[in-house]
Nucleic acid binder design. Sequence first.
RNA 1: GGCUCCAUGGCCGAGAAGUUAGGCACGGGUCUGCAAAACCCUCUACAGCGGUGCGAGUCCGCUUGGAGCCU
Length: 308
Amino acid sequence: MQPIITILGPTAIGKSRLAIELAKRFDGIIISADSRQIYKNFDIGSGKITSYEMQEIQHYMLDIRELWQDYNVAEFQKDVRQIIKELKDKKTLPFLVGGTGLYIESILYNYNLPTIAVNSSLRTELSKLNKVELQNKLLELSPEHNLNHSDWNNPVRLIRAIEIAQAKTIPLISNQANSYKPLLIGLTTSLENIKKNITTRVDARLEQGAIAEVENIKKILANKLSPDLTFQKLAQFGLGTMIINQYLEGKINYEGMRQQYIQSEYKYARRQLTWFRRMNDINWFEADDKNLIAKTNLLIADFLRLKS
RNA sequence: GGCUCCAUGGCCGAGAAGUUAGGCACGGGUCUGCAAAACCCUCUACAGCGGUGCGAGUCCGCUUGGAGCCU
């Protein structure tokens, strides 16, 4: 079975740095599991590492889409499976590194995603309906839907459920069971440290030109999309982008923008932790541990020996 | 020294006698094709003391703290 090392954790905790060090030691390559870093021209804001920082380690799943294009889990799953498949004979060790829990699980837990693809015209139509209308429509099409209380109130999930129900065909499952043997390494630290790291990182981003980057993103999007879609797309790149945009439009001052940016990143980190908490096969490490590299190195060595 | 106004939970903010406003933040959670998204749950406060009411953030008095005006 193909071993695959996963490094996950909340934002700004040092996943990339650790991944590079370990990849160097194990003849590895890095597959990014980050839903934003797939976009070109969104570098500073998404925390993408520079080619200098990559230190010759091959990276995949970065810059694979233009800003105006869409992407989703199903595509991610397909793309990553393909990458790993092609590696197999090369004897290299893949490191799946990132903070997008859904994307990571889709690979490691072998998600069986329905074959029903996104129907954008249907989505546009459904997005005009309010929550109750969506709920009624779903009940009509699929009386015994399995949405939980939280999702039942979530327009995004309701629309997807309707999309599946609407397809009428029996949702075939694309079950190409992969045969990966995963090892999960999780990086964590106290909430205070996370907050501190995020503050440092946000300040660094602002210094490196995060604001100019958002201006550029707006320009690129506006060139390709309608004003409406441009705004929608901009929102998709995360709160940080929206907050900087508000600053650019003069709606908030610099310090207010900075504070909100930090706060939104922190909230994101909390949500990531909530997600990872339920994955119970993670080997957790303290991010500040001086022996982090040695310890994880040992864990991987044992894991690989065990595997063969 | 005199007069006037204000004082609500971490923050913003409604409420002028009779359920718990609400928003944001914090904390917890959901998650199988937008996931840095979207959604769910949770936090019961009225500056202090006394009084009048069956009943007081809501009326009266005093105290404390803040804002303004006057000599």
